[in-house]
Amino acid sequence: MAIIEAKNLVKEYKTIIKDKGILGYIKHLFKPKYEKFTAVDGINFEINEGELVGYIGENGAGKSTTIKMLTGILTPTSGEVIVNGLVPYKSRIENNKNIGAVFGQKTQLWWDLPVIESFRLIKKMYKIPEGEYRKNLKKFTELLDLEDLLEKQVKNLSLGQKMRCEIAATFLHNPKIVYLDEPTIGLDVLVKENIRRFIKNINKEKNTTVILTTHDVKDIEEVCDRIILIDKGKIIFDGEKQKFKDNYGKNIKAELIVKDKVGNMAEKINSENFTITEESNELIKLKFSHEKTTIMNVMEEISKYCKVLDIHMQESELEDILKEIYKKG
């Protein structure tokens, strides 16, 4: 059964429009004009317990807005959200007991106090039993390497250290669902790695449902099984990661090591089926689509002009696919 359900979810923001110049601003004082902006435009999805979902899209696509509606911080303009049997914005407090959330640029830790104090508060607020709290704390400390951080004031931590503590704080009460809005923003590769491993680990052990938004495609590659891609408030893809690649990643890149090349290949071959992206005397890089041709055909064409020694093929990566999709707009 789905643990999260969104039906026709819409969020409109009311934005103020102002005329130019100081007069325009003053005019606005007496007669404000508003404009509606649809940030999330009728999205539907179901997420099952234990799924690791990557929620991706360009800047301003409406990811954070969706997450805020799922957590109950924002009320949808229309449509329905049901999380674990509850409507989040109606029973926010009840819902909060089951969830955890990280908003990348903000912190839930107490700025001036040592990290451990925030953990203790969480223990108290969520009524985490002593034993469970100890067990989790010990485990998280090991996994996220928090040993030296717990007694430090939050304001003295580096970004990466803070995020590790933040993540620990979010999972401390064994939430059923965790929303992570850009948890890896601004972190170095090792910390990112560490956080990804942690998320996967907890998901496996406790069957926690995780929804992750990120701009780092590697997060998705490594953590998520499913991708929901949103563009201008509408879902344009929802499905397994592999299916996403199959659907969009039809382009294949190949590198050929060649010998005895005669002249400029790009000029001679004018095939519609593949494009040469780079060439030198020993190396030709090219791109072709699965649908149009096969590597054998490409080879045949190429070998008219040179001798092919070796081939190197590469399926397009998530990053390239996203780039193409975003460019098309």
């Binding site: 805020k68 957590t71 109950g72 911080i73 926010r92 407090i93 909060n96 007991k97 969830i99 959330a101 908003f103 903000k106 912190t107 839930q108 607020m125 969520y126």
Partner: peptide, 13 residues
């Protein structure tokens, strides 16, 4: 400054 999100996510009104 948006810190209110932390308060709204607490299991407490």
């Amino acid at each position: 400054n948006g810190k209110i999100h932390k308060e709204l996510l607490a299991p407490l009104s």
